[in-house]
Nucleic acid binder design. Structure first.
Lengths: 340, 340
DNA sequence: GACTGGCACTCGCTACAGTCGAGTGCCAGA
DNA sequence: TCTGGCACTCGACTGTAGCGAGTGCCAGTC
């Protein structure tokens, strides 16, 4: 039952060769390319065991072996060491990220960088509002019954919503409202605002009550409760790399999944501190993505995490390299955010 | 040389059949499916002429005919009538667009709607800042040397930039700055602001001069000059419709083009009033898109145009239907914007 | 002069048979 | 426990043949 060291070495060799060549690998080629110190026949025996255990499989009887999802999993967990980045990559990251003026800018540069370095589809979640604090709330009168609510978060995110007031409101009252919401909510985490917003309505002066009520509704509904996550995507053209071999011939399901914000958030938005999450093939809960793997991690200034980022590619991907890149980029982005 | 009515009818029939079946159409099938009133042999003669003139071609000697880009062009220009929308489509549009709370919301709903109705890739440009007026400029202090500049345009767009000041600035001065920029720039079109911004610096009091200078730089550089266009995309999964027949087997170039904001802007951002632009195949200036067609138009409240929208699909597309849908959606969006 | 029916021809598609070779599983022997 | 040898499997490739959709051309008809 147990896999001895040599069997593991064989598995590692199979994964590495298959990732490199994209072709089923046979016993003879294996001993030629790796110093396993044994003959093809021995390797064949090991392969038979590995296949029985579900780590590799044969596409057809007279072909070489291909890793299964389970095989990749074992490889990632026990057989691979994270590749250090090349100096060139390191430089690319730095060059790409300095000069970003803006949160939008940072996110866009990051996602393109990730796509370029990993040659896969990159996904970056904007800093989550739920994990941000309110830095400032601004109310700009659009008309007598309309306000533009602009929220600036400490992560640099800026969100705006139109507020339709139940009745016209004088300019002085707008100023009062602005002062009130800033006094009460400024500095607090968005996830903790609901009771504060509630209190805000109850404590506000009668003539402000109506406006404050709708304002609070907008605040709660649109900013806090849901839908407030944003996501940037890049590198979809990389899906066509490797011809039609990856993704079992159809990009359809993948492209569909990438259009669903909810799916993407699930993939990269559930990061835990200092972990890199790797989802391989059918470990994925979305059927559309059973032919793909996702490498993701969280990022944020210092030790806190404000969002997730990652890449999606074929199960046949260079895990060590990808993991290293994703981590490095996340770290750089975190440093960048910390400077603000 | 001239094409008589029957030859045009033959071309129309070929286009319609090919769009519907995606298979080269032969003379016999043609007379069976359309009431042309002549025999296959006659149709063949007409086809020979059409081929000589470059409107159709044979994929291989013993196959039926397929329209060329030039053939589609003739079809669109002279042979097709814009299909009226079905009531169901009309309803879908209305249902989709009511309830949008936000410019972001409007744009996102629109792009998804377009993708869904046309079953193609949809592109929507946010209202162009160059065609917007300043409604309000807000300056929010982030630290003593940093301001967040928030600009709200009359089209509903909200843009923000971080302004790094050369020296710390007291709160009172921020208020002065805010008043100054709003007085000077409020209501003016963004394309006309540069001289105003210039004047602003020259006229400002000495103690504000430094801050105003950097502020004006940011204003000019990032908001007016360039890069300020935003774009939303949806329906890329539709590219896989029709198997690998469309786009000559490779989605690669298309996906690459769709990642380039500049390209997309060129495609849909140069709308002229009340025109629907159709670019067919190699009429497109981007090599990557020679296998695709683009249908686009401008939209805006009333008669003015503030942005463009459109769809991209295979040259083999239902032009009449697509044109009708694009126009209808643009009109609805315009009405929606006019309400604000 | 325009249209039509007929006919020979082209050529991609499919099916089928045969060959090749990479790769396997198994077994006897070291 | 490993190794060399051997028979076997089966996909990939090649060549051949038949089919049929579709064409171009031509002589005949209205």
């Amino acid at each position: 039952m147990g896999l001895d060291d040599r069997k593991l070495a064989v598995l590692r060799a199979i994964v590495e060769d298959y990732v490199a060549t994209q072709e089923p690998v046979g016993s003879k080629a294996l001993v030629e390319r790796h110093q396993l110190g044994v003959s093809p026949a021995t390797v064949r025996n090991d392969m038979a065991v590995l296949e029985e255990e579900g780590y590799i499989r044969q596409p057809h009887t007279s072909a070489g072996r291909v890793p299964t999802d389970r095989g990749y999993r074992l490889f990632v967990d026990r057989l691979s060491r994270v590749k250090p980045l090349s100096p060139a990559e390191r430089r690319a990251i730095e060059r790409f990220l300095v000069g970003a003026v803006d949160l939008d800018d940072v996110v866009h540069r990051t996602v393109r960088l990730l796509a370029q370095l990993t040659r896969q589809v990159a996904v970056v979640q904007y800093p989550s509002l739920a994990r941000s604090s309110v830095r400032h709330l601004e109310l700009v009168p659009i008309s007598t019954t309309r306000l533009m609510l602009v929220m600036i978060a400490d992560t640099g995110r800026v969100e705006q919503r139109l507020v339709e007031l139940p009745a016209p409101i004088p300019a002085d009252d707008v100023m009062d409202l602005r002062r009130l919401v800033n006094d009460k909510l400024g500095g607090s985490r968005l996830s903790e605002t609901p009771p504060l917003v509630q209190a805000l309505v109850e404590e506000s002066a009668p003539h402000l009550r109506g406006a404050m009520t709708t304002l609070s509704t907008v605040l709660l509904e649109t900013l806090v409760e849901r839908h407030e996550e944003r996501i940037a995507l890049a590198g979809t053209a990389n899906l066509t790399r490797g011809g039609l071999l990856d993704f079992q011939g159809s990009l359809r399901p993948i492209l569909e999944a990438l259009e669903e914000e909810v799916v993407l958030l699930k993939l990269i938005g559930e990061a835990e501190p200092s972990t890199t999450r790797v989802l391989i093939g059918d470990e994925n809960e979305f059927d559309n993505l059973r032919a793909a793997s996702v490498v993701s991690t969280g990022y944020g200034p210092g030790a806190t995490i404000v969002g997730g980022l990652g890449v999606l590619g074929p199960t046949r991907m260079d895990y060590p390299g990808t993991i290293a890149t994703v981590r490095a980029v996340a770290r750089y982005v975190g440093e960048l955010l910390a400077q603000n």
